[in-house]
């Protein structure tokens, strides 16, 4: 090392809205092992590595869909096997996104100790939380396929459209996790409002009803609810075995990218002061 060597790192006050993106990305990529390891430890900690834990992962959404089906039958909507399959499929995907949000919202504030003592791209924390919800979601697909088989609904090659739909769903989940984890640093009570928010979102989405059954007055929901086109496509693909409409897929993707970009911008522009805020 010689005296005129360049500094390996320089820390100066920041003026720009965002940190330099290239080094940020490089630092993030170098730490990708953290994200997978964190998810693994998190799942292990919640005992999802044990037999009962895994059973619960499957049982919990099943019970939920049972309860909601009961509700539908009692309030007297028409109820048949397609309806049940639709409810189950959509509920599973909805909870995957909601879980990304619920897991993500406290990820930054819960990582306080790490944030105060280590320099790393903070966005890794909500990313890890989203990965956890993805891992928890995957087995429920198998459960749904079994249910579908038992109900005798058609299996087609169009069902492979599920893959891009899941990808879009998790982009959306990631965007929401990033956004809410950042908001939670400034407003710690956001996490307590989240269940109410999620519950309303559940009712405003075509889950307990099919999108086509919506009253004409409520049609605008389709345009303001990011989950609307996504869940409608999901139901069409998974339940009916049909191809989704491209415009719906495109709109879903735009929503997801929109949230991801806004969330990431918000997060990156704030994360440098997280260490004094958490």
């Amino acid at each position: 090392m010689n005296a005129r060597a360049l500094p390996t790192e320089v820390f100066e006050p920041f003026h720009s809205a965002l940190p330099p993106l290239k080094p940020y990305w490089r630092a993030l990529w170098a730490r990708r092992g953290f994200i997978s390891e964190f998810s693994r430890s998190d799942l292990r900690e919640k005992h999802f590595d044990s037999l009962f834990g895994q059973l619960w992962l499957i049982l919990n959404p099943l019970l939920l869909s049972g309860v909601y089906f009961l509700l539908i039958v009692i309030i007297g909507g028409h109820s048949d096997k397609t309806r049940y399959a639709h409810l189950t499929a959509c509920l599973f995907l909805f909870y995957a996104i909601a879980n990304a949000m619920i897991g993500g919202v406290k990820s930054v504030t819960a990582g306080q100790r790490l944030i105060l003592n280590t320099a790393f791209p903070r966005i890794m924390l909500p990313m890890s939380a989203t990965l956890v919800s993805l891992i928890r979601f995957l087995p429920t697909i198998a459960v749904f396929l079994v249910i579908k088989g038992l109900l005798g609904l058609p299996f087609t090659f169009q069902m492979f459209w599920a893959i891009p739909i899941i990808a879009i769903a998790f982009l959306l989940g990631l965007g929401l996790a990033i956004l809410f984890s950042c908001i939670n640093v400034y407003f710690r009570d956001i996490a307590t409002f989240l269940p109410y928010f999620n519950r309303s979102w559940l009712y405003l989405s075509p889950i307990l009803y099919e999108a086509s059954a919506l009253k004409p007055e409520l049609r605008p929901l389709e345009h303001i609810n990011p989950l609307f086109p996504l869940l409608d496509s999901w139901s069409r693909v998974m339940v009916h075995g049909q191809a989704p409409s491209f415009s719906q897929l495109g709109i879903s993707l735009l929503w997801a990218l929109g949230f991801l970009i806004i969330g990431t911008y918000f997060f990156l522009s704030r994360e440098r002061e997280f260490a004094v805020r958490v």
Partner: peptide
């Protein structure tokens, strides 16, 4: 914390070689 890059400085500069 500033030297280790955890807190960005409010003013001034820190150079780290290593």
């Amino acid at each position: 914390r500033v030297i280790s890059g955890i807190l960005p400085p409010t003013a001034g500069r820190v150079e780290v070689y290593g």
